[in-house]
Structure formats: structure tokens, C-alpha cells
Amino acid sequence: MKKPVPYEKRKASYGYQFLSLWLIGTLIFFLYPLAESLKYSFMELSPGKGGMQGEWIGLKNYIAIFTADAYYSKYLIDVLIETLWKTPLIMIFSLLIAVILNQEFKGRSFARAVFFLPVIIATGPVYSIISGNLSGSGVGTQFSTIFHTDLTGDFFEFIGLYGISEEVQNLAEMISDHIFAIVWNSGIQILIFLAALQGIPSSVREAALIEGATGWEYFWKITLPYISPMILVCLIFTVIDSFISPDNAVMKRVLEMQQEWKYGSAAAMAWTYFIIVMFAIGFLTLIMRNYIYYQTD
């Protein structure tokens, strides 16, 4: 008689069967290309018959992108700094909007529909056109002028502020210049925060009301701890989203290098960038970990 296969083992084999499609795909379309591109980054390449041909040049590509390339390190720093200040703004903004959209008021479903709208548009070429990022055409800058020119200056004059200090003016201008980008990049974050807010048990809310908590106390002592795991999710999502967007300067530079057939340098650029991003995300997670509250039943 054949020995029956133990249940655990059978389950494990089913597990592999469910994963089989993905395993094949990942080997061909992810892991192999990943290894290849790492290899490219150490090589001087030229496209030849039947694939890439090239010779091993060690770390030369990596040294060259920082010393010989005039743009890469500048773009890299620009993108890092931009992410550094834009991410907190997006987080605060989307949390604020989510809290507001979670309240009861007339026209709430319309407001929700509008605020989620960027989710379906912001990843595409339409967004690069309307936000004035479309490179090379010279059309882009024309679009955004209506929105950007001196809106803040007008506003300050309108409410009667003239001799306002230079710094405040600059700060306000910077925020109003970027409000478009912030609002348009917060769709998913608002969605995630809203879902998290609705996950706060109503019993907690009632208890807080009976204890006489004000809205302000409620936000800091109840809302924030409850949604803290989602804050981390949003934070990581925001960072990744801005890092891998084809619209950012480093990614554009990588693309340019590829179009100039400098695949080795392009791969080295992409890998350096990727490793910095990984470090950033790991660092964030480590810091955030101390502040996250997990609800235990």
C-alpha cells in the first residue's frame, strides 16, 4: 500500500502550486533582469548581435556618474530634498482632508469623489501635461502660468497685507506653487487614511465622549495612535511614489542615458538611486517603529 502523504506536506505543495505562475514570471521577468542590470552597471556596454556585449570595467561607471556626469549628483540631491519636504506636507494634508471627509456634512460624497479623482489621473501622461512637466515641448510651462503667477501676491493684496516680511511671502509662495502637486499626489493617501479612520471602533469614540474629551484631545490621544500603522504605510507609499515616478529628474536622467545607448552608466545611476531609496525607507521604518501603536484584541 502506498504511504499517504502527510497533510502538512500536501498543503505545502499546494502552496507552491498556487505560486507557480508567479515563480516562473518572477524568474524570467524580475530576478533575471535585476541581476542582469546589476551586471550591466559594472560594464561598458554596446548592443550587439543576440544581446548586450561589453567588458567588465569594475566600479568605473559608479565613479563616472558622480565625477564626470554634470547632472546626476545635482538631480539626486534635488530629488532627495524635494522628497524630504514634500512628503511631510502630503502626509499632513491628506490626514487633514481625510479627517474632514470623515465628518458629516452636506455634499460629502461629492467632495470625496473629487478628492479621489487624482487617483485615476495622476499616474499618467495627462498629469505631466497639466502640471507643466512635459519636457522638450515648451508647451508645459504655458499651462501652469495661469495657476502659478502671483496668486499669493494678489491674495495678500486682497486681504490688505502689503508690507509683509519677505520670508513669509516666500514661504507662502512656495506652498501655493506646490499646492497643485500636493493635492494631486494625495489621492491614495487620503483613501488609506479615510479607511483607517473608519476602522476606529465606535466604542472608543463613545468612551472618549463620555469622559468629556474635546475634539482636539480626541485627535491626539485617540485618532493618531489608532491610525499610526497606516501612517507608516502612507509614508512609505508616498516616498516610493515620488521616488519611482517617471517624472522625477533622476529617472529622466536615467532614461536620457538609455536613449544615448549608455546602458552601463544608466544601470549604475538607477542602482545607486535605488540603494539610497532603500536606505531611506529602512531608516523611516526604524524610526517609526517606536511610535506605532498596534491594537491588540
Binding site: 524570467i28 543576440g50 516610493i240 544601470a267
Partner: peptide, 26 residues
């Protein structure tokens, strides 16, 4: 890792795979 790695990293090797039909073409 698949979530984190930008498409730009793996685009060229994937292109080579498709262009030469996963190495069958030669």
C-alpha cells in the same frame, strides 16, 4: 522588492529578453 524596484532598473534587460526572444533568436 517588486514593489520597491523601479521599472527603469529592469527595463533594458527585459527589452533584450523580448528582442531576442529569451535567447532563442541566436
Amino acid at each position: 522588492l517588486m514593489i520597491l524596484v523601479p521599472d527603469q532598473i529592469i527595463a533594458i534587460p527585459r527589452y533584450i529578453e523580448f528582442r531576442y526572444c529569451f535567447g532563442i533568436q541566436p
